[in-house]
Amino acid sequence: MSAHTVIRFADWTITPETAPEAPGIIHELECTTCGAISGANEDFEEVRDWAFRHVGRNPSHTGYREIIHRFWRAVLME
């Protein structure tokens, strides 16, 4: 049995997902000192509050890495 491959050159674009059922942007903060992570949340204020509590308990933990999960959709240009 032989395989037949068709390659079609096309223009694509990628854009933020806008479907009503798509999740919003999800935020996390990771402490760069100990690696503790806030947990994922669509509400950045919740994530920020976690960082304030964390630095309050660990005054030397002043660096944080932001992790953002943003959903995208590839669209074939016509």
Rank of each mutant, 00 (worst) to 15 (best):
E45W: 05
Y64G: 06
F9E: 15
V55W: 01
I68E: 08
I67R: 13
I14F: 02
S60N: 14
T18Y: 01
G56Y: 06
T5F: 11
F52D: 12
T62A: 11
T33Y: 10
L29Q: 04
H54N: 04
Y64Q: 07
A22V: 04
E45C: 04
E46R: 13
R8S: 08
T18M: 09
D11R: 13
E45K: 08
E45F: 05
M77C: 13
T5A: 09
E66K: 08
V47P: 04
E78G: 10
H4K: 14
L76A: 15
H69F: 07
E21P: 01
A74N: 09
T13E: 12
D43K: 03
T13W: 01
I37Q: 11
C34T: 01
P16A: 12
T5V: 10
G24E: 02
I67D: 04
P23W: 03
V47Y: 02
C34D: 03
D11N: 12
T15V: 15
A3C: 14
D49S: 02
E45M: 08
L76Y: 07
N41E: 08
E21S: 15
L76S: 10
V55F: 06
F71G: 00
A22D: 07
S2G: 10
D43W: 00
A3V: 15
E17D: 15
R57V: 01
T15R: 14
N41A: 15
D49V: 00
I7V: 15
R65I: 06
H54S: 02
G56E: 03
I37C: 09
G39P: 03
A74I: 11
N41G: 11
A10D: 14
N41H: 12
F52N: 12
G24I: 01
E30M: 14
M1G: 13
